[in-house]
Design a binder for these strands. Structure first.
Length: 354
DNA sequence: GATCCGTGGAC
DNA sequence: TGTCCAAGGAT
């Protein structure tokens, strides 16, 4: 039997730790509230999990609060204008998530009567919901015994079970080992517990093994190699790209902006017309006495960018070759992706970071 | 499996 | 300053 006296019950050890150390988050239903019968709202679980994809808890907090205040239900979000959702997401990154978020909300309303599907299998059919997010929603919102495998779980399991093959090739084995541990009861608490463990104790560098509930069974700790796991295949170096953006204002103070195509870098976001760096290209938006305001440096996931910012003032009523005029009164730099906000700040203030 | 896709914080 | 990393998904 697995639960003999000399075989520690790993899920129980972790859940006991979580009962005491669960971190407080705006989207989380704490273990004590679950025991009192409180059910998590699947909409809030889904929204938080999408925001948390490759993004830190600290970065997500305020975005989650603003989204749920403005759109309290999935039906509210489904009815929102695309531009409003993209603007609210600005600065959080990976903008395909925002487009898929809207597509998913509308699918839930149109195909599921406004109720989120409850099973991992059904959730997987929705846009922006992959293996991790489907398991997270199924377990956290519905206590389905689904196994979440995120970066935290990969690290925790690779150490606990001494998996030395590098990621991403070892992902399948880590998933299998994680699934073997997943308990039938308290699946939602367990999923959050193992991720909290990775986020606060079993950290990438200098893990706090001394206070870890899984210290005793951890094979990497026994071998003294915990800090070297998980191994990862090296990533390609980031190349340097250079380009130009044109920031035009009318004599009336309007800003010339361009909606980017839905596919590709910063897809669906508002920005300044540009060329030479994102594969899109194109001419200056109008003939003018363009003046170089300086350079903006920015690093994306897979390349470094040096952007030359050109500025000009155009006569009110000028019909541009590209983009559309936005009134000064309704233009908010915070609605732009970060690289464009840096360019704006440089043009407006003479420096990239006001 | 490989590539594309943001951002900000930690070290 | 440069690198790594974070509750990944789509193609």
């Amino acid at each position: 039997m697995r639960d003999s006296a000399d075989t520690p019950d790993l899920p129980a050890l972790l859940l006991d730790w979580y009962d005491v150390h669960a971190r407080s988050m705006p989207w989380r239903t704490p273990p004590a509230d679950r025991r009192n019968g409180t059910k998590p709202d699947p909409y809030r679980v889904w929204l938080s999990e999408v925001m948390l994809q490759q993004t830190t808890v600290a970065a997500v907090r305020d975005y989650f609060t603003r989204f749920t205040a403005r759109w309290p239900t999935v039906a509210d979000l489904a009815a929102a204008a695309d531009a409003d959702v993209m603007a609210e997401w600005a600065g959080l990154g990976y903008y395909a998530r925002a487009r898929n978020l809207l597509a998913c909300a509308r699918a839930v309303v149109d195909l599921h009567g406004g109720i989120f599907p409850a099973t991992r299998e059904a959730l997987l059919t929705l846009p922006g919901i992959g293996p991790y997010t489907a398991a997270a929603i199924a377990s956290i919102a519905h206590d389905e015994a689904a196994t979440v495998v995120d970066g935290n779980v990969e690290r925790v399991i690779s150490r606990l079970r001494l998996v030395t093959d590098p990621l991403p090739a070892s992902k399948a084995e880590l998933t299998r080992l994680a699934a073997e541990l997943t308990p039938a009861a308290r699946a939602g608490d367990y999923a959050q517990a193992i991720m909290d463990l990775g986020a606060t104790i079993c950290t990438p560098r200098s893990p706090a093994c001394g206070i870890c509930p899984w210290r005793s069974p951890c094979r990497a700790r026994a071998e003294g190699v915990e800090a070297t796991l998980p191994r990862k295949t090296p990533k390609a170096a980031k190349p340097l790209r250079e380009g130009t953006v044109w920031i035009a204002r009318s004599t009336g103070g309007d800003w010339l902006l361009e909606r980017r195509p839905d596919r590709g870098l910063l897809g669906g976001m508002l920005g300044f017309p540009g060329t030479g760096w994102d594969g899109a290209g194109g001419p200056a938006p109008a003939p003018a006495d363009w003046q170089a305001a300086g350079e903006v440096r920015h690093t994306f996931t897979h390349f470094h960018l040096i952007l030359t910012v050109q500025t000009a003032t155009l006569a009110q009523g000028t019909n541009p070759l590209r983009g559309e005029w936005h009134p000064q009164a309704t233009f908010r730099p915070a609605d732009l992706p970060t690289v464009m906000r840096k360019a704006h700040d440089l043009a407006a203030n003479g420096r990239a970071h006001p």
